[in-house]
Amino acid sequence: MSVLAEVSGNVTAIGYGLAAIGPGIGVGIIFGQGVQAIARQPEAYGLIRQNMLLGFVLTEALALIGLVAPFLFANL
Protein backbone atom coordinates (compact mmCIF):
# COMPACT_ATOMS: atom_id res chain seq x y z
CA MET A 1 0.00 0.00 0.00
CA SER A 2 1.34 3.39 -0.95
CA VAL A 3 1.77 6.07 1.66
CA LEU A 4 -0.96 8.71 1.43
CA ALA A 5 0.24 11.08 4.12
CA GLU A 6 3.12 11.17 6.50
CA VAL A 7 4.15 13.15 9.54
CA SER A 8 7.67 14.44 9.66
CA GLY A 9 9.44 15.96 12.65
CA ASN A 10 8.98 15.12 16.30
CA VAL A 11 5.77 13.17 16.95
CA THR A 12 5.91 13.83 20.69
CA ALA A 13 5.07 17.47 20.04
CA ILE A 14 1.80 16.34 18.47
CA GLY A 15 1.30 14.04 21.46
CA TYR A 16 1.60 16.93 23.89
CA GLY A 17 -0.71 19.03 21.76
CA LEU A 18 -3.35 16.30 22.00
CA ALA A 19 -2.70 15.78 25.70
CA ALA A 20 -3.25 19.48 26.40
CA ILE A 21 -6.78 19.48 24.96
CA GLY A 22 -8.33 17.65 27.90
CA PRO A 23 -6.85 19.77 30.72
CA GLY A 24 -7.65 22.91 28.71
CA ILE A 25 -11.32 21.98 28.57
CA GLY A 26 -11.20 20.88 32.22
CA VAL A 27 -9.75 24.15 33.51
CA GLY A 28 -12.33 26.06 31.48
CA ILE A 29 -15.16 24.04 32.99
CA ILE A 30 -13.79 24.37 36.54
CA PHE A 31 -13.51 28.14 36.43
CA GLY A 32 -16.69 28.65 34.44
CA GLN A 33 -18.77 26.63 36.86
CA GLY A 34 -16.89 28.00 39.85
CA VAL A 35 -17.57 31.63 38.94
CA GLN A 36 -21.18 30.73 38.27
CA ALA A 37 -21.46 29.06 41.67
CA ILE A 38 -19.94 32.09 43.43
CA ALA A 39 -22.35 34.38 41.58
CA ARG A 40 -25.28 32.26 42.70
CA GLN A 41 -24.20 31.85 46.30
CA PRO A 42 -21.65 34.44 47.38
CA GLU A 43 -21.95 33.28 51.00
CA ALA A 44 -20.50 29.86 50.10
CA TYR A 45 -17.35 31.54 48.72
CA GLY A 46 -14.89 29.75 51.02
CA LEU A 47 -16.16 26.27 50.20
CA ILE A 48 -16.42 26.90 46.45
CA ARG A 49 -12.95 28.39 46.37
CA GLN A 50 -11.47 25.39 48.15
CA ASN A 51 -13.02 22.95 45.71
CA MET A 52 -12.05 25.09 42.73
CA LEU A 53 -8.44 24.99 43.94
CA LEU A 54 -8.52 21.24 44.35
CA GLY A 55 -9.96 20.73 40.89
CA PHE A 56 -7.48 23.14 39.37
CA VAL A 57 -4.53 21.40 41.01
CA LEU A 58 -5.62 17.98 39.77
CA THR A 59 -6.34 19.17 36.23
CA GLU A 60 -3.09 21.10 35.99
CA ALA A 61 -1.23 18.00 37.18
CA LEU A 62 -2.71 16.09 34.23
CA ALA A 63 -1.44 18.72 31.82
CA LEU A 64 2.03 18.50 33.33
CA ILE A 65 2.03 14.69 33.17
CA GLY A 66 1.35 15.11 29.47
CA LEU A 67 4.47 17.26 29.30
CA VAL A 68 6.74 14.49 30.61
CA ALA A 69 4.95 11.57 28.99
CA PRO A 70 7.17 11.74 25.86
CA PHE A 71 10.25 11.26 28.06
CA LEU A 72 8.61 8.45 30.00
CA PHE A 73 7.67 6.48 26.90
CA ALA A 74 10.72 7.40 24.85
CA ASN A 75 12.36 3.98 25.28
CA LEU A 76 9.28 1.78 25.13
Binding site: L53, V57, A61
Partner: peptide, 10 residues
Protein backbone atom coordinates in the same frame (compact mmCIF):
# COMPACT_ATOMS: atom_id res chain seq x y z
CA UNK B 1 3.33 19.87 45.17
CA UNK B 2 -0.42 19.54 44.83
CA UNK B 3 -0.71 18.78 48.53
CA UNK B 4 1.46 21.80 49.37
CA UNK B 5 -0.56 24.13 47.16
CA UNK B 6 -3.85 22.78 48.51
CA UNK B 7 -2.80 23.13 52.15
CA UNK B 8 -1.23 26.53 51.65
CA UNK B 9 -4.00 28.27 49.74
CA UNK B 10 -7.21 26.74 51.06
Amino acid sequence: AGYLAYRKFS
